[in-house]
Simulated assay, not measured.
Amino acid sequence: MNDPLSQRLWFLFGLLLAAGLAGALLSPHFLQTSTVGYLLQYVPVLGVLGMAQTLVMLSGGPGIDLSIGATMSLVGLAIAAMFGLGVPLLLACALGLGIGGLLGAVNAVLVCVLRIPSLMATLATFFTYSGLALALTGGSALGGFPDWFGVLAQGRFLGVPIHMWTVFVPLAIVLHVLLSRTRIGSHIYAAGNDERAAFLSGVKVWRLRFALYCLSGVIAGLAAIMTLSWFQAARPDAGEGMELLSVTIAVLGGAHIFGGIGRISGTVLAVLIVTTMQVALQLANISQAWQLAAIGLLLVGSVVADNAVGDRLRARLRRAS
């Protein structure tokens, strides 16, 4: 219990219980069984984007990917366009993941090669990708997907959406193992904690961050596929607002904004908290403006808590070294 990160996880668990209690008080429909399935419908898309944001932040820099929602929208439109041209849907999805990686590589070049601060670089690509999505479609959605494709996000197994079992949970496990049990994970933490020391110890910081921006694009492609399956259509605004929600989830989950601190388990708890809040406010018929205000307050509180935990942990790391 003396570990600040463990304390953060207990804090998040308590916050999740508080969000659930608030939901029950705000709406009598919140505790219905159907609400759980409705809530979990949102978790995989937001969750994978939050995990991608966590990886980018952990590697330091400081790193952030504000284009992740626009990347998701553009990849979804690319998959729909390829399918409309006769490309088999599964192949179009695979190619979409590659397109996501290429869009992430654009961010990587801007940040890692041209040395543009990640905030400015990914904000620029956010506007570029969003503009392309609107310009190429005129703001219209692209549909025509087969019914079987909807099973991924609309189907249920044991009352839980299938994309929870097939995408969100496996990705969370893989990334947890990557960060906690592999050399790559230790390199990510090392680069985030002290870039110069990591470089002198043999970590290829430049390559590592480049790869993580590419991976962020691929994961945004996964989110696009789940969204396509859910809505059975590609919308140019599908990822609108997702970038800020992914940042909120990553920071609330314990990812330090300057890198080196954070866990995937914290990100998982954070996405459950955010989606619980959103669903509770929607069921209570609270306006979208107040919902955004609540998310904003949550982000401010998470940054304050993040700074407190980060300062304590960094001080402990300095004493240990």
Rank of each mutant, 00 (worst) to 15 (best):
D3G: 06
D3E: 13
P4D: 05
P4L: 03
L12P: 09
G14I: 07
G14F: 10
A18M: 11
G23N: 06
H29F: 15
T33A: 15
T33D: 11
T35S: 10
Y38Q: 14
Q41M: 12
V43G: 03
V48R: 05
L49K: 02
G50E: 00
M51E: 02
Q53L: 00
M57G: 01
G63A: 10
I64R: 08
S67K: 07
T71R: 09
M72V: 05
A78G: 14
A78E: 00
A80W: 00
A81G: 11
F83Q: 14
V87S: 01
V87W: 02
L90C: 05
A92C: 07
L95I: 14
L97E: 09
L97M: 10
G101E: 01
L102P: 04
A108H: 00
C112V: 12
R115T: 07
I116H: 08
L119V: 11
M120C: 05
L123W: 09
T125L: 08
F126P: 08
F126R: 15
Y129D: 04
S130E: 11
S130I: 05
S130G: 09
G131Y: 10
A133N: 04
L134K: 14
L134M: 15
G143F: 04
G144N: 02
F145L: 10
P146I: 10
W148G: 04
F149N: 11
G150K: 04
L152D: 06
A153C: 03
A153H: 00
V160C: 04
V160W: 05
V160H: 06
P161I: 00
P161D: 01
P170W: 02
A172C: 04
L175S: 03
I184W: 15
S186I: 12
A190N: 03
A190M: 02
A190D: 01
A190R: 04
G192C: 03
N193D: 11
D194H: 14
D194Y: 08
A198M: 10
S201D: 06
V203P: 04
K204A: 13
K204T: 10
V205T: 11
V205G: 04
W206I: 09
R209P: 03
L215M: 09
I219D: 01
A220K: 00
W230K: 13
Q232K: 13
A233V: 11
P236M: 01
G241M: 11
M242F: 15
E243R: 12
T248L: 15
A250M: 00
L252V: 05
G254N: 00
H256R: 09
H256L: 10
F258D: 12
G260W: 00
I264W: 04
S265E: 14
G266R: 07
G266S: 08
T267R: 12
V268C: 08
L269D: 03
A270C: 08
A270F: 08
V271W: 01
I273V: 13
T276L: 01
V279K: 14
A284E: 08
Q291I: 09
A294P: 07
I295T: 14
G296I: 07
L298Y: 05
L299W: 10
D306R: 02
A308R: 15
V309I: 15
G310I: 03
D311A: 12
D311W: 11
L313C: 07
R314S: 10
